[in-house]
Design a protein around this nucleic acid. Structure first.
Lengths: 193, 193
DNA sequence: ACCTGAACACCGTTCAAGT
DNA sequence: ACCTGAACACCGTTCAAGT
């Protein structure tokens, strides 16, 4: 009961979490010292499910792609946590630390310099988080509403998108991800261009 | 006093905003119907400052880059608003609608298909929002703390990054942005590869 | 038309008191 | 060692009452 970060807390509130555990809200403070602590536990639980095994048997651009896709899938189902987790230090989150180390060493041993490796990780993560946000946004996010006359061309394309918001978000993510990784590969190992 | 979304609201709370305006919190509901309304006003105010004039006199990959840099700069100074604004529909936000229309038509008239154009906008935005998050994260976000022995290689590179977190975040963003745009250009107009 | 002040149902957190 | 219940300082929002 101590280490478990119980799943299914849609309303991530101390009271709600306590109710789900059958205790009072104040009882939680015998196990964690603040809400920040439970966020760290959740972050680590979530990051544990990200699949980065591709780095074992693929070249880094391909592995990066698999990692990013898995990363995004993990967070799409828990989008309300993204703004909290995206700025959360990884100290005391062992699974997250392990993941970063693996990705970093894979890039490094493939000849990518340490600064570029960190930058690549940060860049991929930025796209992943941003895309997960996008996937969680309402389908009509680009609907100009009463301002249609201001954006006739964009509105038409946005309506097409709204018809299959999730599929469109997936396509947009994969287009950007492929473009990003392709660009990174050319930048970091230009001889293979 | 009605339309103004007063600046300097660090604590974006109805009470705080009311205090800054010298009225009571409940008085605000004579002008807006909910906090969501003031967020829309703020979103529009903020997006008004994004510079997309580059689309007037540059080719789309270059213009996209200028737009993204300006976009990110706008949100870096108001990072606490990102999670709210990133999922906010743009209906009733005229400046935002205007911006999207301009970017979309610029891409479209350059020969980019409507679906790709929207995907490119979404992809750039994802990177911008994610990178703005990253820039607002604490400098020691990648510090493994007591788990140093789990990530010796990554920790070293992360420490280098922490020494100049903001500069590193900028570099990572620009590396990813250039790579992304380069990849998009190749994908959308392969003949110019 | 616009404001105030009290009230409501919530937050995260603390702390004395119990077992 | 772990829990409860009351309390605190906050949220966003409503509403009767004032001018």
């Amino acid at each position: 009961m101590e280490l478990v970060a119980e799943r299914g807390y849609d309303h991530l509130t101390m009271a709600g979490l306590a109710r789900k555990l059958g205790v009072s809200a104040s009882a939680l403070y015998n196990h964690v010292s603040s809400k920040h602590d439970v966020l760290v536990l959740i972050q680590d639980r979530l990051n544990e499910e990200i699949d980065y095994s591709a780095f074992d048997h693929m070249d880094w651009p391909q592995a990066l792609r698999h990692w990013a896709v898995s990363y995004r899938e993990c967070y799409i189902e828990h989008t309300e946590l993204i703004p909290l987790i995206a700025v959360l230090p990884i100290a005391d989150a062992p699974q997250s630390v392990r993941m970063y180390e693996r990705v970093f060493t894979a890039l490094h041993s493939a000849g990518v310099g340490p600064r570029d490796a960190v930058d690549i990780i940060v860049g991929i993560e930025a796209l992943v988080f941003g895309a997960a946000f996008d996937a969680s946004a309402p389908a009509d996010i680009f609907d100009p509403g009463g301002l249609l006359e201001m954006a006739p061309a964009f509105a038409e394309a946005a309506a097409l998108r709204a018809a299959d918001a999730r599929g469109s978000a997936d396509r947009a993510f994969e287009l950007a991800l492929d473009a990003l990784i392709d660009g990174l590969r050319r930048r970091v190992s230009p001889e293979r261009a």
